[in-house]
Amino acid sequence: MNSQIMNRLSTALPSVCQRCQIRLAPSQLLRPFSSTRQINAQPNSKSRDKGQALEKQILDTGNSQPSEANSPLSKITQLMQGEKTGTSQPVSRDYFRMAESLEAEMIKHPYADRAPPHHLHVYAHKHNTLLTLTRPNGNPLLSLGCGNLGFRKAGRSGYDPAYQLASHVFGQIQERGLLLDIKRLELVYRGFGPGREAFTKVLLGNEGRYIRGLVSRVTDSTRIKFGGTRSRKVRRLG
């Protein structure tokens, strides 16, 4: 009943009702659901300085980049990063030219960055087997065949003479101390006689345990004829 009367009075006499209304403070208007007072504490000057210093340190460490002098990255990596970010120096513009020239040089001289290998030539003929160890420049160090082990004529061909020859050659390489000079070894096969498989068997066996760790490349230099002279007729018995 009273509320209805007050509503009617407010519509009829707004000036009178405004005087009767309770006036609220601006702080109470901003925070209608809290009766506690706002206390704006002034921070200590020392703590404020420490906070600013810590914030500056964090920002500096986040934005700073390692200098070129103290950077653990290599020069090539720095150049590549500069190329990606677009902040490369004039030196990095010739990087790809340098890489292409280096690749071409490595193709021409594949052993330029390391010692060239020694060569062990395995000539497996159908009538004999010859093993020759050479220096990187081609000068022979050791050359033996099945005839040096006492095999004669037709006895030089076969699996067993080649097996004994390979074992003997590996023993000679160790006795003469050639393993100290050989850093890398390249095997060069030629021919498809029975000595080819016999040499491979010895190399992978107990006799070649000190040699096979030095092998860096295996090549095949078997002669292939394209045209040329007429081959000999096939031998037929009976």
Rank of each mutant, 00 (worst) to 15 (best):
G62P: 00
P117T: 14
L13E: 01
L142R: 02
S3R: 15
N44Q: 10
G158D: 00
L165C: 00
F96N: 03
S92L: 06
R176F: 06
L165M: 07
L185I: 04
Q57G: 00
L203D: 10
G150Y: 01
Q81I: 12
R48E: 08
L131D: 01
G138F: 08
G238A: 10
P90Y: 02
S35H: 14
S45I: 15
E197W: 02
G147E: 08
S34V: 07
H118Y: 15
L102G: 10
H168M: 12
P43W: 04
I76E: 02
P116H: 04
K46G: 05
T36L: 09
A104K: 13
L214M: 12
A104N: 07
E207G: 01
H125S: 14
P14S: 05
M1C: 04
N128T: 04
Q42K: 14
L185W: 04
Q4I: 15
K50R: 15
I182D: 03
P136V: 13
Y123H: 14
S34Y: 05
A115C: 02
L180Q: 14
T85D: 12
F199H: 03
R230W: 06
A162L: 06
F192E: 11
R223K: 13
A162K: 02
R135C: 04
S101C: 00
A166V: 01
Q65H: 08
L144E: 05
R209Q: 13
S143H: 13
I224A: 09
M106C: 04
Q81S: 03
H121Q: 02
L79N: 05
G228V: 09
Q21H: 09
S15I: 07
R135Y: 07
G195C: 03
K183T: 13
G51N: 10
S101D: 12
I39E: 08
R230Q: 10
R31C: 02
A41V: 14
Q28D: 14
R114C: 11
V202C: 03
L204W: 09
S15E: 11
E68H: 12
C146N: 05
R8G: 06
D160H: 11
S34I: 04
L30V: 15
F226C: 06
R209D: 12
T134A: 06
V202Q: 03
S64P: 02
G147H: 00
